[in-house]
Nucleic acid binder design. Structure first.
Length: 489
RNA sequence: GCCCCCAUCGUCUAGCGGCCCAGGACACCGCCCUUUCACGGCGGGUACGCCGGUUCGAAUCCGGUUGGGGGUGCCA
């Protein structure tokens, strides 16, 4: 599977519910790796012990499995660069830090943010952030700080000049290092920070291409500078290439945040989106497979995916289009497949027995053709099918629909229907249709719409249902007539 | 404030100098199909932010401007 030395990674922090932005980033990394026959590494960035949770970790793994984005190295599968949890790699970070220190690429800093900010202000500097005050401290100064009880953070010494790289999605990007202050690699308490750990892991894991969100764009010059130092001290071999993916925006003009309901990736599974539908939609946020084509499979995406084709401008998340793409994938499914996928939802909703009985399974197989093109998400099947599976004594007619569709005027219609169906020799869709047509349309002179509405509500309980005659056939004569009788009072 | 990124229909995008008085999809609006709801079919409106420049020719290249977004932590 891994026929090239392309190595990419996704490196989520297990803090909270996984975000669709994470899925999009994972997808592009995965597609890039698969397209190039490379390796997709999955690493967990759980350095923030306060916020990382096992629950979040489990949900991310679960999500990736559901999506079908498989990884070559990482949790559950291991790999040559294990462990893949940052919380288990502190020795590696300590070693990296020690080597950088030895090469004077870092220095101890005793300042508080307030002190640095005050100095910046006093100097009239337009630049924000740390001012490099502790870069060249004398022994006396250090002793004085220590005597005050201060504990230092370790900062990286940014080089002078400018840092430029050729971003895989944006082209040449350049920063003057005077605007990128010396940054902390390690807390005063000794904990390594993301700024150190992320590049060190990428280096150790020999990541060749870093594809990540645009929010990390401005931290790239720091990482490139760090990388150069890591190469010096023998930890990194090369600086990876970077590609910054555009934001996924929510309502208004802000990036999709955890507060937006559509941001939560797990919710899509619960609502019955297909993984291929969600992924297809997410792929469209910043990438197009062709000028006149929106629907494609993961395999087709892998085949066509080029990182250079990804656009740089942010994309607004449009749930309606996401639904439409999902619906298109639903229609691509075979009847067997969609039935198979709908079943867990029906069980969960209590529509069918769990484990499913033979009778329910048989009925479901007959009913699915009636609704397979009427649902856009798997979870919607239950609403349409419940009337077929419900026990007669639990069957309920929607009060509002009954009032609208039956009322006073509907009684004769139901009576006529009952009479027409009661003695029907054969209980088939065709016979039912003919009988009702004759009795209601021809007999009572009703428009089809008015004729069948009351029957639909009486028998299925709702104004919206699968096709009526087929529904009646599946329900059976006894239950159908029983429901008509009930509606007649 | 400073730094950086971005800029084509309402939305996602195609377009990488002439094929574009700009194509597709979603959404929207009509119509057809129709026993409800869908599916499907047909049709419609709507976009290159602005100003300069380069060029025989610009949505496409360059500069500026405006607008939007992000960053600016001992978070990731």
């Amino acid at each position: 599977m891994t026929s090239s030395n392309v190595r990419v990674r996704m490196a989520p922090s297990p803090t909270g519910s996984p975000h669709v932005g994470l899925v999009r980033t994972a997808l592009f990394n995965w597609a890039f790796a698969r397209h190039h026959g490379g390796t997709f590494v999955f690493r967990i960035e759980d350095t923030d012990k306060e916020r990382s949770t096992d629950e979040s970790l489990a949900s991310i793994i679960d999500l990736m499995r559901w999506l079908g984005l498989d990884w070559d190295e990482g949790p559950e599968v291991g790999g040559p660069h294990a462990p893949y949890f940052q919380s288990e790699r502190s020795d590696l970070y300590a070693d990296a830090l020690a080597r950088l220190k030895e090469n004077s690429r870092t220095y101890d800093c005793y300042c508080t943010n307030e002190e640095a900010a005050a100095r910046r202000k006093a100097a009239g500097s337009k630049v924000q952030g740390y001012d490099g005050f502790c870069r060249e401290l004398s022994e006396e100064q250090v002793a004085a700080f220590v005597a005050e009880g201060r504990k230092p953070v370790v900062r990286f010494r940014m080089p002078d000049g400018s840092i430029t790289w050729n971003d895989l999605v944006r082209g040449e990007v350049s920063f003057e290092t005077e605007f990128v202050p010396d940054f902390a690699l390690c807390r005063a308490n000794g904990d390594s920070l993301y700024t150190l750990v992320n590049p060190v892991d990428d280096a150790l894991m020999e990541i060749t291409h870093v594809l990540r969100g645009e929010d990390l764009l401005s931290s790239t010059p720091r990482q490139i500078a760090l990388y150069e130092a890591l190469i010096e001290v023998g930890i990194a071999k090369v600086t990876p290439e970077f590609g910054h993916l555009p934001y996924v925006m929510g309502q208004g003009n802000k990036k999709l945040s955890k507060r937006d309901p559509e941001a939560h990736a797990l919710a899509y599974r619960e609502q019955g989106y297909l993984p291929e539908g969600l992924l297809n939609y997410l792929a469209l946020l910043g990438w197009a497979i062709a000028a006149d084509r929106d629907i494609f499979s993961l395999e087709e995406m892998v085949e066509a995916f080029e990182i250079g084709d990804v656009v740089a401008n942010p994309a607004r998340f449009d749930l309606k289009k996401c639904d439409a793409i999902n619906a298109a994938h639903m229609r691509l499914l075979s009847l067997d497949d969609i039935t198979h996928r709908v079943l867990p939802f029906l069980k969960k909703q209590g529509v069918v027995s769990d484990p499913v009985s033979d009778a329910d399974a048989q009925l479901l197989e007959l009913a699915m053709p009636l609704i397979s093109e009427r649902i856009n998400k798997l979870a919607e099947a239950g609403d349409l099918l419940a009337f077929l599976f419900v026990d007669e004594d639990a069957f309920e007619v929607d009060a509002e629909d009954a009032e609208k569709q039956i009322g006073e005027a509907g009684i004769p219609v139901l009576q006529a229907s009952y009479d027409a169906l009661e003695g029907l020799p054969a209980w088939s869709t065709e016979a039912i249709q003919t009988a009702l047509q004759t009795a209601l349309v021809d007999g009572l002179g009703l428009k089809p719409r008015n004729a069948f509405g009351p029957v639909r509500v009486a028998v299925t309980g709702r104004r919206i249902s699968p096709p009526l005659f087929e529904s009646l056939e599946l329900l059976g004569r006894e239950r159908s007539l029983g429901r008509l009788r009930r509606a007649l009072g």
